[in-house]
């Protein structure tokens, strides 16, 4: 490697690469809870979220990222959930959102 002081690095790509992402864990979650696939990302869950209104937690965004195989930080994010269950009352597609939180934590504990 060179000893040159460049003053800059090489930006890492922000692109989600679905050829490289491991979709396996997301599929396992879907297999256990197919209704998770019916999310239309309306954001009702996030609007009412006890944690999301006071922290950076965005349930809709994080669980959608998990669906794409982007697991980094998901477990830590889901730990912000207080499991109060309000999101499940709001969901127009009847998804057990509280269950989604618990499944993501269980499956992605290692990520």
């Amino acid at each position: 490697m060179s000893a040159i002081e460049w003053g800059y690095g090489i930006n890492a790509p922000r692109t989600m690469d679905l050829d490289r992402n491991d979709i396996g864990p997301a599929r396992e979650i879907l297999a256990e809870m197919p209704e998770w696939g019916a999310c239309i990302a309306c954001g009702g869950c996030t609007a009412t979220c006890t944690a999301g209104n006071l922290t950076s937690f965005n349930f809709r965004r994080v669980h959608t990222l998990v669906k794409r195989g982007e697991y980094a930080g998901a477990w830590a994010e889901m730990n912000k959930c207080m499991l109060c269950g309000k999101c499940r009352l709001v969901c127009p597609r009847g998804i057990n959102t509280r269950g989604v939180v618990r499944l993501i934590k269980r499956k992605l504990g290692d990520y």
């Binding site: 922000r14 692109t15 989600m16 690469d17 990302a41 809709r60 965004r61």
Partner: peptide, 30 residues
């Protein structure tokens, strides 16, 4: 949710497409 911006060929004769997953706010390709 995102509009595919282009399709281009890959070396194995498939097609690479690009879009933004607007619901997470990140570009994606596959």
């Amino acid at each position: 949710r995102g509009r595919v911006s282009e399709a281009s060929p890959t070396i194995d004769g498939r097609l690479q497409i690009k879009a933004e997953d607007t619901l997470v706010g990140r570009p994606m390709k596959m």
